[in-house]
């Protein structure tokens, strides 16, 4: 069942937040939503705000796209050759199990922090994406393969009309999970690595100066961008699916 967020529920929690903030009366501990909105309105008119968004978005989404391409390739190969599946399994398990902070620190030792978010976003997305796509390929009904063989359906048509629609379900659910994941991990990497002009750097500055309104404003921005990309990407996927299934 698809759960939708109701406006009244959002308003209720905003009200709770405002009341608690007023009761505490300590802006450093819990800033009020009104203050956050005021701070946000100050930030969005600055050039640096937009530059930080572009800087982080390009890197995080870049890492996500590279992960999607590599995962598709690896999953296709692993489904065809058992040896590749066996070879990649421990590698994927290791990436899944190792804490993201360890990767960030290691990456900072090896490279500069400028493109850190690309690597971290890639590493967090790839195992989930690979596993989902591989499951999708492996669960294609053998009876449908038999049908395709009996009716001598060309490989291209098999891929387009039988394989892809089936794998798409797995791919879509992986995308929905990974788009949130890549933003969380990407920004975490930027907070630790502090590349100049990134969202992570802004968050780190907020921490250093105990600037809670800034922290909340940037967090709100990250959530919005993450949701925006998620919706955009999923909508794009559904359009691609419609185009793929179209038969003239």
């Amino acid at each position: 069942m698809r759960r939708t967020i109701k406006l009244w529920a959002v308003l209720f929690w905003l009200l709770v937040w405002q009341v608690v903030s007023m009761m505490l009366n300590q802006q450093i501990l819990l800033v009020s939503p009104v203050k956050v909105i005021i701070r946000l309105s100050e930030l969005i008119i600055t050039k640096d705000f937009w530059l930080a968004i572009v800087f982080s978005s390009t890197r995080i989404i870049g890492g996500f796209i590279i992960a999607v391409i590599v995962s598709c390739l690896f999953a296709a190969l692993a489904s065809k050759f058992k040896l590749i599946d066996e070879l990649l399994s421990p590698f994927m398990l290791a990436i899944r199990s190792v804490p993201v902070a360890s990767f960030i620190i290691l990456a900072l030792i090896w490279f500069s922090s400028k493109n850190l978010a690309i690597l971290i976003s890639f590493l967090m997305v790839m195992p989930v994406m690979y596993s989902n796509i591989l499951t999708g390929i492996c669960t294609i009904d053998s009876k449908m393969r038999e049908m395709a063989k009996v009716f001598e359906i060309s490989t291209i048509k098999q891929v387009r009309y039988i394989y892809v629609p089936h794998i798409f379900k797995y791919f879509e659910s992986a995308c929905a999970v990974c788009l949130g994941l890549c933003w969380k991990s990407g920004v975490a990497a930027e907070v630790i690595g502090m590349p100049d002009g990134s969202i992570g750097e802004c968050l780190q500055q907020a921490k250093v100066y105990l600037d809670t309104p800034d922290l909340f404003a940037w967090t709100f921005v990250i959530v919005c961008i993450s949701l925006f990309f998620e919706r955009l990407f999923l909508r794009l996927l559904s359009k691609i699916k419609i185009l793929l299934l179209r038969m003239d």
Binding site: K143, M144, E146, M147, V150, F151, I153, K157, Y161, I162, P165, L245, M247
Partner: peptide, 21 residues
């Protein structure tokens, strides 16, 4: 060619597309 015991149709395609496939 065959009619299988199960339908074995491409569930996301419409009837015309399944036949033309």
């Amino acid at each position: 060619r065959a009619v299988f015991q199960e339908d074995r149709l491409c569930e996301e395609l419409d009837a015309v597309s399944n036949i033309r496939l």
